[in-house]
Simulated scan of single mutants.
Amino acid sequence: MLTNRQIKLINSLHSKKGRVENQLFLVEGEKAVLELIQSSIQIEFIVTSEHFAAKYEQSFSPIELYIEDEDLIQKLSTLVSNSFGFAVVSMSPFQFTLQYKEQITVVLDGIRDPGNLGTIIRICDWYGIKQIALSHDCTDIFNPKVIAASMGSFSRVKFEYVDLKNLFESNSHLPVLGALLNGDDIHQVIFPGECFLVFGNESNGIRPENIPYITQKVTIPRYGEAESLNVGISTAIFLDNLRRG
Rank of each mutant, 00 (worst) to 15 (best):
S234A: 14
S15C: 08
E35P: 14
E209P: 02
Q99H: 05
M151W: 11
E102T: 07
P212H: 12
E202D: 09
K16R: 10
S228C: 03
G205S: 10
V89M: 10
Q42W: 11
N143H: 10
I129C: 02
F159L: 10
T219A: 01
R244C: 15
L197M: 12
P144H: 00
L181K: 14
H136P: 04
I211E: 13
D185H: 01
M151C: 11
K158C: 09
F52R: 00
I129E: 01
L2R: 11
S49I: 02
G224L: 04
D163G: 11
N166F: 07
D125P: 05
S49K: 10
P175F: 11
V47T: 04
E160T: 06
I111R: 04
F142P: 15
L98T: 11
F191K: 08
R112P: 05
V218W: 08
S135Y: 09
V146K: 04
P212W: 07
T119R: 06
P93H: 13
I121F: 07
K31C: 09
S12L: 03
E50S: 11
F196K: 14
V189E: 06
R19P: 14
F96V: 08
T215E: 00
A53I: 01
S39E: 13
N210E: 07
I43S: 03
I190A: 15
G85F: 01
Q131Y: 13
K101H: 07
W126P: 00
S49C: 05
I214G: 02
S81K: 14
V106S: 03
S203W: 10
I211H: 00
L117D: 05
I63F: 06
E35K: 08
D184C: 04
F25W: 07
L181M: 14
D137W: 11
K75P: 04
S170L: 08
N171S: 09
I46Y: 03
I123V: 13
V80R: 01
G200P: 15
K145N: 04
T215P: 05
F25T: 09
S234V: 13
G85P: 01
C124A: 13
E225D: 00
A179F: 13
K101L: 02
R244L: 05
V231S: 03
I121G: 00
E50M: 03
S12P: 15
L239E: 08
A179H: 02
T139S: 11
Y56E: 10
W126Q: 06
F168W: 07
V231N: 14
D163R: 08
K8I: 02
K217F: 04
P114S: 15
L167N: 09
R112S: 08
T3A: 00
K217E: 08
E21T: 02
E50V: 01
Q99G: 12
L98V: 07
D163C: 06
L34D: 09
N4E: 15
K55L: 15
E21V: 00
